[in-house]
Design a protein around this nucleic acid. Structure first.
Lengths: 338, 338
DNA sequence: CGACTAGGTGCAATCGTTTTCAGCTATTCT
DNA sequence: AGAATAGCTGAAAACGATTGCACCTAGTCG
């Protein structure tokens, strides 16, 4: 039989209300009383029941997190950012993998809402009308991390995938390349897939280079896609001289594919990745990549959520974090003319 | 104002008790009544309050998970196994990073207990008396995943680190090596650190090879440790011909360190890793490594926990999962004499 | 045909807190 | 000195479900 607040009250010779005040740090308690209560708590080994508290106070200090796949390096890093800030603000996190399956995403959202979380952080790819429908029934704030809703209604934290794709391609163009291939993410993914690809196209277009379909391989962001993409590119009569991959995993696959065929990176082909997961530094040559501040996206999203949960004023509900290109050895140093 | 069970009862013209029965799938409800209630629920958009339910039923269908670092590939994979099985059994997971700091581990345990989780899965390295003290105050079952308590009281799921370390070393010995170095994990870690190292020593000992201190580098399981370890080994007059690293990250660091110095793997030096994280396949040469069934450790631990939570009989409270060596290209193919 | 049984339902207590409100004491102000 | 105020405290009503128990209706059995 667990110790309740009532037991403590009896032991300390006060009312439950007073015990509650002590536990919650309410200043309106005489120091001597506080001491008595604390002693009773200690003596009895009292542990407040957060479920009862949640029911009475209507706050659970718990937030829900929906994540496509926690075993992916990218999302794990985001999750870490979320968890750190959450714990800083004394929140706990209910974490669930959605596998990016719509049905599961919606079901999880409902479950979290039933559990009375104080807020939700959602990671995924596409935000459909189905999502919006469920999200709008929520009485608590929802923040998107690493994605963005097309209507721009929901608060979100992300980078500009379009500009990032553009910058990466432009980087290769500036290095003098004219035959630049791309390994895209799934085009069904509006951001990591489509927008990065659109950035690529825009950069080519601006440079007066026409996009060739044979220079585009539609991957799934995983390592194996990179290997396969290279196979396609190397079979071409006019091979590309540079490859931009929409994820680091694919980029590393690309590097290995190139090396396996006896060519060298960056001498024969240059490669640029995307994300800057730790893997980017654990490959030879180390990968030049678009740095996405994954940890920060998670952290900022969580911070944003706390503001909503506390009814604080929020100036911008859509946050775009900066990206940049980290040059390593998978591309050649560009000569800077002075 | 959210819809409560009472609103549904009124709308359907029945009592709260009946609504509760319908919601919980209690068979003692006339089909026509059930239909009415379901209609009312649908119409009102009723969402049961799990907090209230938790208070009344004393079950939250939530389990706590304490993890050292979710952004580590190893633990993320474990977490995935846990989450998959949890969701299969309709449990949600409260996930928190401990950073392996004792104080935080204990604090998190208490917080989870306050939140009335139905059970806890604990991942970490050392299980001290402090842990035991807190764990025994818990009214709910606690299962260790990827670790084991020295007293053998707590249920746990893990591999035999000692045997795995032994096998890896033996593998190298069988390949004809006599100068075998090891990059260990932190020796303060009794399992991934100490036990694997002890396995290494035993294998050497059995083979009549004496262990040399200069052939042992005390790493931290991270990539950089591997690089540094190689520096030490290569500075020796009598260099090792094979290196066993206690983690894949370190092993990849070792490979790159070797390559950076102009030597080749496996021709000049062979390398064996530990864990079999995805990285092991995303490096050239691909890494021969001790396969640890990370996902399964998580999954089995969660499954075990469900048994305890349902008061099912459990035959073995300590589960040792099998490990094996996956041969890839960082070691030479052993000639099998027929 | 009367007595049981079983299915279906509602009443009301309970879970362990928070929180409003009122009341009491002791102090401060005029 | 009397009134007003500030600081502490307790009583009791929520919070929104679950669940044991009693009750009622039909159907079944001998």
């Amino acid at each position: 039989m667990p110790i309740t607040i009532y037991d403590v009250a009896r032991e300390a010779g006060v009312s439950m209300a007073t015990v509650s005040r002590v536990v919650n740090g309410n200043p309106n308690v005489k120091p001597t009383t506080r001491k008595k209560v604390l002693a009773a708590i200690e003596q009895l080994g009292y542990r407040p029941n957060a479920v009862a508290r949640g029911l009475a106070s209507k706050r659970t200090t718990t937030v829900g997190v929906i994540i496509p796949d926690i075993s992916s390096a990218f999302f794990a890093e985001l999750a870490r950012g979320i968890d750190d800030i959450a714990s800083m603000y004394k929140y706990n996190i209910i974490l669930s993998d959605s596998d990016q399956r719509l049905e599961r995403e919606l079901h999880l959202t409902n479950t979290l809402l039933e559990k009375q979380v104080d807020g939700i952080i959602f990671m995924g790819r596409e935000i459909t009308e189905n999502h919006m429908e469920v999200f709008t029934t929520a009485a608590v704030p929802i923040v998107l991390a690493g994605t963005k809703d097309p209507t721009g209604q929901l608060p979100s934290v992300d980078i500009s995938h379009f500009e990032a794709g553009y910058d990466a391609t432009k980087f290769l163009i500036n290095a003098g390349h004219t035959r630049i291939a791309m390994v895209t993410g799934p085009l069904g993914d509006p951001l990591a897939g489509m927008r990065r690809f659109e950035g690529y196209k825009k950069a080519l277009d601006e440079a007066g280079l026409s996009m060739k379909d044979s220079y585009v391989y539609n991957g799934n962001l995983r390592y194996e896609s990179g290997i396969k993409a290279v196979k396609q590119f190397l079979s071409l009569v006019e091979r590309p001289t540079a490859i931009f991959a929409a994820s680091d995993e694919m980029a590393v696959g690309v590097i290995h594919g190139i090396q396996d065929s006896g060519l060298r990176v960056p001498d024969d082909m240059e490669v640029v990745g995307f994300d800057n997961i730790r893997l980017a530094e654990m490959v030879r040559p180390r990968l030049t990549t678009v740095v996405q501040p994954m940890y920060d996206i998670g952290a900022v999203a969580m911070r944003l959520l706390t503001k909503y949960m506390n009814n604080e004023k929020v100036e911008n509900h859509i946050v775009i974090l900066p990206h940049r290109i980290e040059e390593r050895e998978s591309t050649k140093k560009i000569e800077t003319t002075i």
